[in-house]
Simulated scan of single mutants.
Amino acid sequence: MVYIIQTTTDDVLEQSFSLYDMNLRLTMRYNAILTGYQFDLFDIDKDEYITKNKGLSVGSPSLIEFNLPFVLVLDDKSGFGINAISKDDLNNRMQVLIKSKGEYREAIRSSSRT
């Protein structure tokens, strides 16, 4: 299962959801210097942050080093495979995908075979 979070041109995006038997709150903040997002991930049940101010970059899984069943991936829907170059790109080209680590690894294996 892939969970999709559509990005916008808002400076702060916040969404709460339940995945993998966890109740989570994701807060993404636009960083004008990076022309991208940094995020906080909060475990609502444990009342604690999993991470704060973590970056998102196209093609690089965020949270891969954490003991979690999933990763966050910034996806460029256009297929260019590059990070945003303007705030409008975040609204038009980008989405954040939440994938299980197994799904992420399989996607990498599949893309390396083509």
Rank of each mutant, 00 (worst) to 15 (best):
T7S: 08
T9K: 03
D10Y: 04
D10Q: 15
V12L: 10
L13P: 00
L13E: 00
Q15M: 03
S16A: 15
F17D: 09
S18M: 10
S18K: 13
L19M: 13
L19C: 14
Y20F: 12
L24C: 15
L26T: 10
R29A: 09
Y30C: 05
Y30R: 05
L34M: 15
T35D: 00
T35G: 00
G36A: 07
Q38K: 13
Q38E: 12
D40T: 01
D40N: 06
L41R: 03
L41P: 05
L41H: 03
D43W: 09
I44K: 15
K46H: 15
Y49D: 04
I50A: 12
T51Y: 12
K52H: 02
N53R: 14
N53M: 09
K54G: 01
K54W: 03
L56Y: 00
G59V: 06
S60D: 12
P61N: 08
S62K: 01
S62D: 02
I64R: 06
E65H: 11
E65W: 03
F66Y: 14
N67L: 14
L68N: 08
P69D: 07
V71N: 07
V73C: 13
V73K: 05
D75F: 15
D75L: 08
S78P: 04
S78C: 06
F80R: 09
I82E: 02
I82H: 04
I82S: 00
A84I: 00
A84R: 04
I85Y: 13
K87L: 03
D88Y: 12
D88I: 07
D88F: 13
D89V: 00
N91W: 05
N92H: 13
M94L: 08
M94A: 12
L97A: 08
S100E: 03
K101M: 03
K101C: 13
